[in-house]
């Protein structure tokens, strides 16, 4: 995907020069390998810092909430769906945005790669489908497909759904992937087993809230975990409190999550946080036939009332 970089720079420079936008939100190289950082480019010189490769897993829609002025934003499939969600939720106006669409072939998982090697990784280079990882005294080339983030392996919306211009040709969407394989597995467990499964899953959590901060959906002025009067969620490391946080966080994303994987990517402990949101996505899909962020004209299911809404759970 590195070939998009030049095109992205070209488009960004043009829209900035034309005065169509005041800044372009994209990525630049981070200070450590596999960690590209968001970059707000406002001039032709700073546009030159923009890059695009397989380490752009963060979700840039996070940076447009409640922004004034015009913004150019580089959007892969999931970013564009989150931008749509933002527009639907009145967090930004569509005409403030100039969306530079990037057809995506998946992002690589830095947790996975770091776990593969004992010593520090110094460079990660990409050419086509091959990723070369090297450090002090070792260098290995691997297929990108093996290194993808888990959400990317089951992604069915690689092409942006909403864009003003594309930085490359549309890619073929993945078909026949079982998006909800992990959820189905958990569903088949008994209540006790489920409990233990999630207990284990969350045991490393340190409540750093990186998942919340990375998530483009989390923009409440005061997050429920920071509320102290009344305080609904305990702030301790107690397993119950940790679980309450994760359940509520996931529930806030119900019908809005696009499975962009930013939460998992941001998690310093490598917790599979998507297990929660995934379940809710599956429910939305099954009950309302809804996938978040696909259209600007449709209201999300938890925002509308229909007489045929499922109500088996009500006595």
């Amino acid at each position: 995907m590195t070939e998009y970089t030049d095109k992205i720079k070209e488009i960004s420079k043009r829209v900035l020069a034309e005065g169509r936008v005041e800044m372009v939100i994209g990525f630049r190289k981070g200070s450590v390998p596999m960690m590209n950082q968001p970059h707000l480019a406002t001039s032709a010189e700073s546009v030159d810092e923009l890059v695009w490769d397989s380490n752009c897993g963060l979700n840039l829609a996070n940076y447009i909430t409640d922004k004034k002025g015009t913004i150019g934003i580089i959007a892969k499939g999931c970013d564009s769906r989150n931008i749509v969600t933002h527009v639907i939720e009145n967090k930004i106006k569509r005409d403030q945005l100039y969306i530079i669409g990037v057809p995506c072939t998946g992002m690589i998982d830095h947790h996975k790669i770091n776990a593969m090697f004992d010593s520090e990784i110094l460079t990660v280079e990409e050419s086509g489908d091959q990723i070369t990882i090297s450090g002090n005294g070792f260098s290995e080339t691997k297929d990108k497909q093996e290194l993808l983030q888990e959400n990317c392996t089951v992604c069915t919306h690689r092409n942006p759904v909403e864009y003003d211009e594309l930085a490359g040709n549309l890619v073929e969407e993945q078909k026949n992937v079982d998006q909800y394989a992990s959820v189905t597995k958990v569903e088949s467990l008994s209540a006790d087993e489920k409990w233990n499964y999630f207990e284990d899953l969350l045991s490393p959590c340190i409540r750093c809230y990186a998942c919340r901060n990375a998530c483009p959906l989390c923009y409440c002025p005061t997050c429920f975990v920071d509320e102290s009067r009344p305080q609904w969620v305990g702030k301790s490391q107690d397993p119950t409190d940790v679980k309450t946080f994760h359940l509520l966080r996931a529930y806030h994303c119900a019908g809005r999550c696009t499975d962009c994987g930013a939460c998992e990517r941001a998690c310093p402990m490598g917790i599979k946080i998507r297990e929660f949101t995934k379940k809710l996505n599956k429910d939305c899909q099954e009950l309302y036939g809804w996938e978040a962020g696909l259209s600007l004209d449709e209201r999300p299911p938890l925002d509308t009332f229909k007489t045929d809404d499922p109500d088996e759970f009500i006595k």
């Binding site: 429920f224 609904w232 969620v233 305990g234 119950t240 409190d241 309450t244 359940l247 509520l248 529930y251």
Partner: peptide, 10 residues
């Protein structure tokens, strides 16, 4: 709100 339910159970 879901937080009432979880706070109650907790």
């Amino acid at each position: 709100s879901p937080k009432f339910i979880l706070a109650g159970l907790r």
